[in-house]
Structures are given as C-alpha cells and as structure tokens.
C-alpha cells in the first residue's frame, strides 16, 4: 500500500503541474486586458495607454509567459497567491471570504443529496417495478431534466413570495446575525441543491442496489435464515455501497466550485458567482488560484476514491 500511494502521489503531482501550466496559459491567452477593461472608453485620455502599460509592467504582465508562470508557482508554494488585478486585495483573502459560504451550502447540499439518493434509491430498488419505484423514478427523472435554477425560482415563488414562509435570497436578513436566521436562509438553497444533486446519484444507487439485490448471494443469505431486511442491510447494502462510495468521492470537488446558478438565484455569495465575475474581468491571479485549488481537490479526491475502493472491496488489488 505504501509503495502504491507513493507512486500515485508522484503521478498526481505531475498531473497537477501540467494542469496548472495549461490553465495558466489558457487564461492568459484569453482576449481582453484586465487593466484596460477597468477604464471606461469614454474616459480614455492620451495618457491612458501609458498608464495601462505602466500598470502592466508593475504587475509583471508584460514578461514572458513561462517566467510569469514560474514566478506565480514559486509564490504559490509559499502560500502567496498574489493580488487581484481588479481590486488589489490578496487573492487568498478573496477566496477565503467566498469559500465558507460555498462550503456551507455545498456540504449541506451534498449530504442531503446523498441521504436522498441512498434512501430513495434503495427503496426504489427493493420495490422494483412497483408503484413506489415508478413514483421515485418519475420524480428523479423530473429533477434531472429540470434545470436547477428553474426549480429554485419556482420554490422561491412558492415558499417566499406566495406563502411567505421563507426568505427569498441571501445568507441572512440584513443586520441579523442569529443562527436561526442563517438556518432559515439555508433551507431553500440547500433543499434545491440536494434535490438536483441527488437525482443522478439516486439512479446510480438504484442500479447498484438492484444488481446486488438480484445477486445470488442474497438468496444464499435468505436460505440461511436471515430476514429480508437483514439481507438488505447486512449483505446487499454493504456491497452496493462500494461503487456508490467511489461516485460520492468524485463529487467532492463540487464542494469547491459551488453551484453557480443556484448561487445566482439565491444571491449566495460563494465561489461560483465569484469565479463568473472574475472570469468576465479576466482577473488572472484569482482565476488561476481557483483553478489550482480545484485541480488539487479533484486529484486528491480521485486518489482517495481509488484507495477507498481497494480498501472496501477485497477483490481489487493495488498494482
């Protein structure tokens, strides 16, 4: 196991560097100079071009791309992610501010999604082809095919505008800092997020459970005298959990990237909406930092998923 991990880590690091190089290059190749974009063309003067050039030089944007990259990665390893071009604030601060709301939203949403998928997916599998299965399948298909933001808007319309039960947007009521208020604001977006993320997973859980439920060893377990429920829990569920766990492990990077549309609809100040804004402004340092963090998370979660798989399923051997 140790040797395997080392090898995997080595290749992970290599892939990570490659990713950062590619993303760095692509971002810098995008049209539009972020500094020039900050100046309305109606306010251009003869001095403006010089000013832009001076600012670019100051930020090192006129150096060769490989040098810029090496400078950036050198700083990044010391934890210095640079300053935003748009407002001069440290990138780590900007990301730090946005990451907590996103993590809050996404982690709760994912937990809900997993719970929904496991419970209803199993239920549908156990009652395959009966009414319960059809109803659950219908709703999960509906959820998959309806855009999340649409469900979000309809939910807001129903619960917030018509029924006046829940707040319509934002993380908190202005000026209020209580937990109760924060929780109230979480209910709708987390629910919508949980629903939309659960749909695909639910289908997968159902499939995995069905294939395990029809497995022969289930019959053997019954033949030993286990109750049907006991069979599901002790044998089927645990086996089905193996592929499910790995799918869940792949969902982890979403914790960071957030759900851009849901964040927009609910005015949630998270990473998703930040990245969209910054991308429109070509704010390189922020974008590359975000890409780097996402890359790390994806690579790590892949590694974890692979290792997890081998730990949980004795049939799989590490190579």
């Amino acid at each position: 196991m140790g040797a395997y991990l080392l090898r995997r880590l080595a290749s992970t690091v290599l892939v990570f560097f490659l990713i950062t190089i590619v993303v760095f290059t692509l971002i810098h190749l995008a049209p539009g100079d972020p500094i020039a974009m900050q100046i309305p063309p109606d306010q251009y003067t003869s001095a403006t071009q010089d000013f832009i050039a001076a600012k670019r030089h100051e930020l090192g944007l006129d150096r060769a791309l490989p040098i810029q990259y090496l400078t950036w990665i050198g700083h990044a390893f010391t934890g210095d992610l640079g300053l935003s071009i748009v407002n001069g604030r440290p990138v780590s601060e900007i990301i730090g501010e946005r990451i907590v709301p996103t993590l809050e939203l996404m982690s709760l949403g994912m937990i809900l999604a997993i719970v929904i998928a496991l419970v209803f997916g199993t239920w549908a599998a156990v009652r395959k082809n009966r009414i319960v299965d059809y109803v659950i399948t219908f709703f999960s298909m509906l959820t998959i095919s309806t855009p999340g933001f649409f469900i979000g808007i309809m939910a807001i319309y129903l619960f917030s505008v018509k029924l006046k039960l829940l707040p319509s947007a934002g993380m908190s009521t202005t000026g209020v800092h209580t937990t109760a208020d924060a929780l109230k604001h979480l209910i709708l977006p987390v629910t919508i997020l949980g629903l939309t993320m659960s749909a695909g997973l639910l289908r997968f859980v159902r499939g995995a459970m069905i294939s395990e439920l029809t497995a022969d060893y289930q019959r053997t377990a019954l033949a030993k005298g286990l109750t049907r429920g006991g069979v599901v829990v002790k044998h089927v569920f645990r086996n089905a959990l193996i592929p499910i766990l790995t799918v869940i492990a792949y969902m982890i990077p979403q914790l960071l990237s957030g759900a851009v549309l849901i964040e927009s609809v609910f005015a949630w100040p998270g990473m998703g909406s930040m990245v969209v804004d910054e991308a429109a402004k070509n704010d390189f340092p922020v974008l590359i930092a975000f890409a780097m963090l996402t890359a790390i998370l994806v690579l790590l979660s892949n590694l974890v998923a692979d290792v997890l798989y081998t730990l949980v399923d004795p049939r799989v051997k590490l190579r």
Binding site: Y217, R219, N239
Partner: peptide
C-alpha cells in the same frame, strides 16, 4: 455457482 452464491466481500 459458489462464486456468486457467496458474498464476495465477506
């Protein structure tokens, strides 16, 4: 078929 009749992960 004992391969499938036995639980592979136990």
């Amino acid at each position: 078929d004992p391969m499938t009749a036995l639980n592979p992960v136990q």
